[in-house]
Design a binder for these strands. Structure first.
Lengths: 335, 335
DNA sequence: CTGAAAGCGCTAACAC
DNA sequence: GTGTTAGCGCTTTCAG
């Protein structure tokens, strides 16, 4: 069952392919009558234009690559949804490319996207993208999302990672906590580095020392690391009285571990989480957490990209950063 | 910055395009030396083959369309991840198409996929797909996932919706509950119909009557409907002593409403949920729920599709249905 | 208003 | 072992 082409339609109507093409493109030179005939038979025969052929004639692809670590992470699902919803209206489709934070996979996906001449790429880059990735991306319109790596250009939409964690930590300090732990992602990621800097800045601002062994960094997408890190933190001779987490999945791991171990929150430990998921509100006493404008960020990104692609002009590369907000629930108390 | 073509490489090396093409395709007729030269300059010049051109020469697209209601629903995110992971190894890419359960959007996405000559389509169909959708899908290899509609062919991977809800209900009956409510999706969806049938069958098997006003059907993806339906159920003069839910998001809505209203679970109401999300374990007394093999289902589907596409033969259209399992926690108690 | 022909980048006959 | 040529489906001159 081979697809119908403009030639098939032309043959059926004793017209030239060019006439059929023009009729389908609603060219003003074609008589209304012919247009109607062509449109009707196209419909009848189940004609669907071949995008590959159009692309060969210079039409741009309508595919935008979305390169992310893992769609199961609700951050990325939210992003994918917002992008998809905002771009569909403009005829753009999203190609889903998961990297699992593996830079080889990342590079392969970019090769695929490049081969299909994607109109643009939206990427949450791995910690240290391969040179190949950098080269491929340089030849495509692209934006970085959430994370940024200097080698991948200026266009960027993200969250205010620094201020988010700084203010979470400052809030705990304001409640009288002097010994605070932090469980977050590695400094190799821009997000991990910024969030940790926020943590340290809040401590420094309050004149508190950095205590060794109270900042536990690991894979940001690992619930297990959340479990393990919390166990290690609570196993110390003098465990901290409060905790800040620096990623959604680490927060989840911490919440599970606190639940399973029966730790009294906030009596034994005050906790400020990262992100606000369904379930955070009803966890134990309710999780005090940083709510982050992920959907708004993605929508901004989509809007920018759409106009950027429409204008064909480069324009200024935006570097937009949105602030989070503290949602106070029962997991935090003063000392 | 226009992309490098085989002609550019040929010109640089004083070769014919066909030679370059063959070298890149590792054709045995080309000398190793020439191959090496071609490969090296291709690399140097940053050549990336043009998939559109290849497709015009009969190569099949490596794009598989994934048509789902909303990627933010963790069911669909899990599906997308499993499909993506299983297909990436075979060079297949996933095109994300969200319908929001709107059949016009569904039809438009299928037109796009058809225009880009997708290698296949994996679809969670809307309740009543448009004739256009049916026609377009008929011309593409495709599978239905989770939901099935008779007009869309035989190939199907899903969950055992009937047995899942039947056994959940039977479990509550076994605990002595005589008055049980059900909050689920509409019968227009195959899933909604099957789950409701499961509910009714369990009642009938136990000789219990269908009571009017205790089965509340609505949009399966609406947390709000979960809230509202539960309020209505508890507002009855003689509210049921137990509740079964028939979708993840309805379950979430119910959980939130129970939490907010301070309803005593399981004393005032026993609850069996649908699906098992992070947070279900730590909600109130822990949510007793049906755990569903969504990942396994998607992986099965991916494997089948990959071999189906490789073989080029139609083969038998599978109709696979996987069972759920009850996870017992604290939200259910006997009467 | 419509037709004929060229060409996008690539591959596959068909030469030599 | 390599070159020449044709053609995939479409748009776009250039002719009528």
């Amino acid at each position: 069952m081979t697809a119908i082409t403009t030639r098939d339609i032309a043959a059926r109507l004793n017209l030239a392919v060019s006439t059929v093409g023009r009729a389908l493109a609603d060219d003003p030179r074609i008589s209304e009558q012919t247009k109607a005939r062509v449109l009707r038979t196209a419909e009848e025969m189940g004609y669907v234009g071949n995008r590959a052929a159009r692309m060969m004639r210079g039409a741009s692809s309508n595919t935008v690559g979305l390169v992310i670590p893992d769609i199961r992470n609700s951050f990325y699902a939210t992003i994918a949804h917002e992008l998809s919803a905002n771009m569909a209206a403009h005829g753009l489709q999203l190609m889903l490319s998961e990297t699992a934070d593996d830079r080889t996979a990342e590079s392969q996906h970019l090769r695929e996207l490049s081969a299909s001449r994607a109109a643009a790429v939206i990427i949450v880059p791995t910690a240290e993208p391969l040179p190949d990735t950098v080269k491929l991306l340089a030849a495509l319109p692209h934006v970085q999302l959430l994370r940024r790596h200097p080698s991948l250009g200026q266009a960027y939409f993200g969250l205010d990672d620094f201020e988010t964690v700084r203010s979470a930590t400052a809030f705990l300090i304001g409640q009288g906590h002097m010994s605070i732990g932090y469980i977050g992602g590695p400094v190799e990621l821009s997000t991990g580095a910024e969030r940790l800097r926020g943590f340290h800045t809040a401590l420094a601002d309050a004149g508190l020392p950095k205590k060794a062994g109270t900042t536990l960094l690991g894979p940001p997408a690992s619930v297990d690391h959340g479990h393990a890190a919390l166990r290690r933190l609570l196993g110390r001779t003098a465990p901290p009285t409060a905790l800040v987490t620096g990623s959604v999945l680490l927060t989840l791991g911490v919440m599970e571990e606190l639940h399973d171990s029966g730790t009294k929150v906030p009596d034994e430990l005050s906790v400020v989480g990262f992100g606000d998921e369904p379930g955070f509100a009803w966890w134990g006493p309710g999780l005090t957490t940083m709510r982050l404008p992920v959907a708004a960020m993605a929508a901004d990104c989509a809007r920018w990209l759409v106009t950027r692609l429409a204008e064909k002009s480069d324009g200024a590369s935006p570097s937009v950063v949105l602030p989070g907000e503290l949602v106070q629930r029962g997991s935090t108390a003063g000392r």
